[in-house]
Simulated scan of single mutants.
Amino acid sequence: MIVSVLAIVVLSVGPASAQTNTVSGAVRYVTDGDTLSLRGVDRPIRVWGLDAPERNERGASAATSTLQRLVAGQSLTCRVRDIDRYGRIVGQCFLPDGRDIAAQMIAAGVAREYCYFSGGYYGTCRGN
């Protein structure tokens, strides 16, 4: 019976609470053009709504270096939107001045909007 109650409690704080939480911290390092780590946050953060080229694809190094320049020395605040299948936080991340990381990367032309997940939030998906 205790196990059943525990299971209900764990399930009830899953995605719903994840969507209302935020994490913040100084940027520790950039993994690639759409993933980074913050000091004090145990999991890597996959930037929500952003699709950057993978390491073996053309444009990957440009995306990674652009993200590095954008966030270097910054403290970010990320609204937790989900946890992906790799255990990463999927977060909509903002610079101290309020600029949205994904919007900046899309505007720089080094990544594109991940329309499947963003629902056209950044206005670059067909049909918007």
Rank of each mutant, 00 (worst) to 15 (best):
A63H: 05
Q92A: 12
A103K: 11
S17G: 10
I83L: 10
G120S: 06
R55L: 15
V30W: 02
Y114K: 00
V30T: 02
S118Y: 11
L95Y: 00
V27K: 00
V9M: 10
P44R: 04
A60S: 15
L67A: 02
Q92G: 04
Q74E: 13
Y122D: 00
A63E: 06
P15S: 11
C93A: 09
I45Q: 01
L50Q: 04
I101T: 04
A102C: 07
G25R: 03
S24E: 15
G40I: 14
G25K: 02
T35C: 10
V47T: 08
R85Y: 13
V30D: 01
L38C: 02
I83T: 07
S118T: 09
V23C: 02
S61C: 11
A102G: 03
D34I: 15
Q68W: 11
T64F: 11
R112N: 05
S12G: 12
V23Q: 01
S118N: 06
S75C: 09
I89G: 00
N21P: 00
M1N: 06
R69C: 05
D84W: 13
C125E: 00
G40Q: 09
D34F: 11
A18Q: 10
S118F: 10
D51H: 08
T66I: 13
A7K: 10
P15Y: 11
P96S: 12
D100I: 13
A103E: 14
P96M: 15
R55S: 14
G14H: 12
S17Q: 15
E54M: 14
D82H: 07
V90P: 01
P53R: 14
A18R: 06
S75A: 12
V80C: 01
I45T: 01
M105E: 05
V13A: 04
A103P: 02
T77P: 05
Y122I: 06
F94H: 07
V27M: 04
P96G: 13
R55I: 15
L95A: 05
S4E: 13
L76K: 04
